[in-house]
Amino acid sequence: MVPTSYYILLSAALFTIGVLGVLIRRNAIVVFMAVELMLNAANLALVAYARERLSIDGQVLVFFVITVAAAEVAVGLALLVAIFRTKRTTDVDEVSTLRG
């Protein structure tokens, strides 16, 4: 078997890439993808620990995460479409009317 820590390190790397995606990319859809990537990284860690502890509860949690992620994507993308209809853009920097 592969040591669990390998999975954790991989999860950390993927999560960091997701964070960078949120911080660097301007395309709202790509930002969304980066968020999904972070969720997946977290899922991976959860599954790895579940195997480590031989506890299937971790897998149940991942199941829930995936379901909620699906709902979140649906609503998020609907929001994007709504914003696009008024702003004609998916650039998050353009959506900055709430600045001080």
């Binding site: 964070v19 949120v22 911080l23 660097i24 301007r26 998050v92 920097d93 959506v95 900055s96 009317t97 709430l98 600045r99 001080g100």
Partner: peptide, 18 residues
């Protein structure tokens, strides 16, 4: 001065959050 912090850029907020 502090007003400048509220740039309206979501990414800046995310940066601070991170």
């Amino acid at each position: 001065q502090v007003r400048e912090l509220q740039s309206g850029y979501v990414r800046t907020y995310a940066l601070v959050f991170t």
